[in-house]
Amino acid sequence: VHDELGSLLVALKMDVGWLDKRLSEQEQRAAVEAPGQRDNMRGKMREKCQNMSRLIENAVVNVGRIITDLRPSILDHQGLWGALEWQAQEFVQSAEQQLKWCMEVNEQRELPEPMAMAVFRIFQEMLSNVGRHARARTVDVDIVEREGWLHLSVEDDGCGALPQVFESPQAYGILGMRERARHFGGVIDIDSQPGRGTRMRLSMPLAAHEVAA
């Protein structure tokens, strides 16, 4: 919600601010501007209103899609492991990046539905962070199962950032990932430095939740 609707609402706020400023200037300019200048400004304001209308339409579409995707249907069709690979391939094709993929898990293992959904959503957010911030050329995905733990990492060769950026109270995506992981006894580790890319890693215990399920 914060990634998709948040960006649309920010854009709408900027457009509304632009319109408000232009309208407040009209009375002062009316006496000195030629008719052609006024017509030009009216045209710009109409364009801005049309852009705002498109943003609102996109927001409405995204609300419907978000509601539909609260339970990702791809988990039903392909299972968690297939869904993770599909999501990675979709991401790099859209972002025009190179994917390095490694998965060493028991693909016959089926995780409880809430846990599978949490892993999938965390993975989506990791990729989303790469797409929004990294300016990377390559994404390295590593998913392994060792001694009853699932380890999932996403590493990029992008611009990186200072560690404190990921601890900010406004880093809602990071907070959401950590909350999902913590619910199942997992942790999110982030290693990043400016100019050295970023590595995000989920570590989550498997056996206890499977028994509980």
Rank of each mutant, 00 (worst) to 15 (best):
A11I: 02
A11S: 03
L12W: 03
L12S: 04
K13G: 02
M14F: 08
D15Y: 10
D15L: 06
D20I: 02
D20G: 05
K21F: 12
K21N: 15
L23Y: 14
E25A: 12
E25S: 06
Q26W: 07
Q26C: 10
E27R: 03
E27M: 15
R29A: 12
A30P: 10
A31Q: 13
R38T: 06
D39T: 03
D39K: 07
D39E: 02
R42C: 14
R42A: 12
G43D: 02
G43W: 05
K44R: 13
M45E: 02
M45L: 07
M45P: 01
R46H: 02
R46T: 05
K48S: 01
C49M: 14
C49Y: 01
C49K: 01
Q50N: 03
Q50C: 09
M52Y: 01
R54C: 08
L55P: 01
I56A: 09
I56Y: 00
E57T: 07
E57P: 01
N58W: 07
N58H: 11
A59I: 06
V60I: 14
V61Y: 11
V61P: 04
V61Q: 15
N62C: 13
N62M: 15
V63L: 02
I66N: 05
I66K: 00
T68H: 13
T68Q: 12
T68M: 14
D69S: 11
D69E: 10
D69V: 10
